[in-house]
Structures are given as C-alpha cells and as structure tokens.
Design a protein around this nucleic acid. Structure first.
Lengths: 245, 245
DNA sequence: ACCTTTTATAGTCATACTGACTCTTAAAGG
DNA sequence: CCTTTAAGAGTCAGTATGACTATAAAAGGT
C-alpha cells in the first residue's frame, strides 16, 4: 500500500469497500491437448456459465495462500500436493464494473499440473471439469481475457525457464517433455534438436537410473528423466518463427 | 473477481474490507546512474521515512488509471505526458500485516522516464525526490522489496523488449541507449557489438535525418535515432554472464 | 598548426547455437 | 522375418555473438 500523506484525510473507510478475490488459470496437458480447469457457476450473475475457479481472499491470508486453498478445494488434491505445485501470480484485474454487483479486484494466478484426476467438484455444489483449451466457451466476467493472458504468459515462460517440467509427472521421457512445448505453443518441434537442447542445458533434466518404463507403446522405449535443479534457461529455448513476450 | 457459488453465503460485506492502493516504482537514468522517485512520509506509520509514491485506487477508476494519476501528481508532469509513458503492472502485494493499520492490498507498477525534471513535490506536502538507486535507504512498509522487484523486472525486460528506449528522450544516440543497458544491468557492454545488435534488429531504432546534436562533448558526434515500431527483440539481447528472469 | 584525447563507426575472425537433415537402434505387431 | 514406430546419434551449413582491431571526426591544449 501506501499513500503519500494526504491532507484531505487518510481514512480508508471513506471509500466504498473493495472485495479482493483470486482467480486461477489451472492448465494441464492431457492427451496432447492443453486443458483448463473450469467450474460452472450456480448463481447469478452468469448462472450456468463456466468460469475460472477462485474465491475470496480471507482476512488472515495472503492472495497466494488463498490461491492454494482454492486450488485444493476445487481439484481435490491433497494439501501437501498443492503445496508443492508451481503457482505464479499472473496479473491483477481491477476494471470497475468487471463484476456487476460490486467493486471486485482480482489477483489472477497460473498453476500447472501434470495430467491430473478429474476434479471432485470441491466443496462447492458446482460442477468442475477440465475442458480442452480450444473448446472453452465464453466465460463469466472477464475470465476469457484472464485465461488468454495465462496461456500467453505460460507460453512465454516456457522459452526462458524450466517450467515445462511442471506439466510432467516426477519421471518423464523427453517425448513427453517435448509434447508439452508442442501443445502449449501449438507447433511441432524437431525431435533431435529438442533433445540436444534439453540435454546440453545443465540442470534442466537429469537421467533416472534403471530400466525404461514398460508402456506397451510402439517404438523404442524412451529413457526416463526427472527435473533438474536449474530454473532458468540460458540461452532460451525460443519457439520457432516466434514472437514471444 | 469471482467466486464459485458458495452455499455458505456470498456476502462480501461479511468480510473485513480491504483497501486497494497502487505503488509506483518510477525509474530513470540520470548521469549514468539509476534513480528512483521517492517521497518522504509525513504521517505515522513510518513518518519521516522514504516510501514509493502511490495512493488509493478511487471507486471509479482502475488501478492503471490510479497509477497514472498518482504519477502525474507526484512528478508534476503534464497529463498528456504521463498518458504516453510506459507503465507496466509489476506484482500485487497482499501479505496481511504489510500495513499495520489495516488490510491493504497494493498493485505495484513500474514506470520508466527519460531524465526528468525535479519533482514538484506534488499536491502533497511531503518532499519528493530522485534518489540514486544504490543510495536508497530503508523504505517504509515492504517498499524495499517492491523496488528490488521492480529493478529485477526492468532488467529482465530489457533483454527481450525494446523498453530501453523509454529511458531515452525522443531522439537519442546509440551511446545513450547503451548507457541505459549498462546502468540498469551494472555492466559495461562492447560498443561495436551493441551497435551491431541494435541496428540489425529491425524496428528497434530508426535513424533521424539531419545533423548530429551539438553537445560540446569530446569525441566524434553521434548520429541520432528514435524508437522504432518493434516492441519485442528477436533474438533477445542477453546480458553478459547473465542469469536473467 | 599540430598533437593528444575521446568517442563514434567500420570491419574481422573464431566460436556457439540452431535448424534441417540423415542414419541407426530397439521395441511391437502381424 | 518383415514392417512400423519412435528413440537416439550424428552431420552440415547458416546465424548470432564475443573479442578485438582499425579508421573517422570532433574538442583541447601546446
């Protein structure tokens, strides 16, 4: 916060109160397609419409804490699982009128999950589901824009960070990792070149000892890797053709 | 905003109200040093301490609008000048207890100015000044952290965007542009290589016709350029040695 | 007028990184 | 045993960059 001292009076109660909420753009890669976690609203306004999960920030918690709490409630993931997830503050949406009922400021977060279970629907009565990103209908409030911003943000972050591993299970193949990039960016990458880039970046992934996973899939079985200690990519892994941020 | 429908009751007034403010990390390059715009607080808490300029978001305005309004008030720049400035939302700070008086959520912005006039002190009684970034004392609230985040953010943005021109006047030399990078990153760059990179990036800068500026400075007079139409840098201009975001 | 200092601008060269390829290996399925 | 599929190894050329050298054009002092 803060205000420069303001002779006319520093009295927050003189202002109409603001509500503060968090909205979550929770993304996952499932079957080679980008999916977003959405909930169906049960109340006006936008009753029956899909929306991003989210909720009020409680008086004693930070927005980040609220985001993790809401995420756990919506997905049914355990608290310890949610505690380890990568959550990133995206943007704060403050337009007056974005909620017809009152003045609401929303702090949006992105979260990335490896292919997760169907959400339990949370404690809320409303339906919660993963929807393929390109089949998402018009959402309530300004959530279309938030989801679009989240996708752009994640796409840009993939270029400069090791974030892609957050979409993968603890042990994964380079093919799975490559599919994360291909799915989020909507492109196809050259397999050998991708492999070379990932393996020559120190700390991006580290090999897992032991036999490859038996999948019953067609070709030569792929070696397993887990995420390394690096968080940034130098030099970056730029998308082809691509404009970035 | 939004909340999933919540049987226990959707009544924002049931919660303690939040105040919403904006804080501004306004940076400039002056005499080869990075400076930040700071104001001195006149009231408790932190009376007499330096803080970032900022203030309440009014009921009818967005946070971005509030940030521009506060910036105009603090710097004395004209409304049209401020309207053209590059303002970027940085992060939103929501920790309970960050303001001892009440629950305050603050949306922080970064703004970049070409070497500006001394601030007028604004409508507020408090003193306002540019302080060299490395001489900034401990600030009120969590403003130390905000300013540090702002500097890190701007440094990272310089690598991937044409943002550096926002620190320069409408017409500038490549030496001035290079000094922006050197100042923000705290490094020295090879002059010919910097020149090559900037000039071969389409749309970064465009030459200004006419004679060079007569400065009375020592060496060969430098050609003038203005900002081009590009906003992103491909490939990026990575800082030497450098870890980035 | 001359020489020195300073900064802009032009070029060179080796290396790193990337994109586009080809080729081999190891599995599954008929 | 042959085909299909995907992993993994390797080649080659073009681009971008870092390090460096050389020239040009100004100011200041002697």
């Amino acid at each position: 916060m803060t205000t420069p001292p303001r002779p006319e009076g520093y009295d927050p109660r003189a202002f109409e109160p603001f509500a503060v909420t968090v909205d979550l753009a929770v993304l996952t890669v499932r079957a080679g397609r980008l999916h977003a976690l959405l909930v169906r609203r049960g109340q006006e306004p936008y009753a029956g419409a899909w929306a991003l999960p989210g909720g009020f920030v409680l008086p004693h918690e930070s927005a980040g804490t609220a985001a993790r709490r809401e995420l756990a409630e919506e997905t049914g993931l355990s608290g310890t699982t949610v505690a380890g997830l990568h959550l990133e503050q995206l943007h704060t949406y403050t337009e007056p009128g974005r909620d017809p009922r009152m003045r609401v400021v929303s702090v949006a977060y992105t979260a990335l999950l490896p292919d997760p279970p169907e959400p339990r629907g949370g404690g809320d009565a409303a339906e919660a589901r993963w929807l393929p990103h390109d089949e998402v209908p018009a959402l309530a409030f300004d959530h279309d824009r938030i989801l679009a911003d989240a996708r752009a943000h994640v796409g840009a972050r993939l270029e400069h960070t090791c974030l892609a591993t957050a979409f993968c299970p603890p042990e994964f193949t380079l093919g799975e990792l490559r599919q994360v990039y291909e799915t989020v960016w909507g492109v196809t990458l050259d397999r050998p070149n991708f492999r070379r880039k990932v393996l020559t970046t120190p700390g991006f992934v580290e090999p897992v000892e032991g036999p490859p996973r038996r999948t019953g899939a067609r070709g030569k079985p792929a070696a397993l890797y887990r995420a390394g200690r690096a968080t940034a990519l130098h030099p970056p892994l730029l998308r082809p053709e691509g404009r970035s941020a």
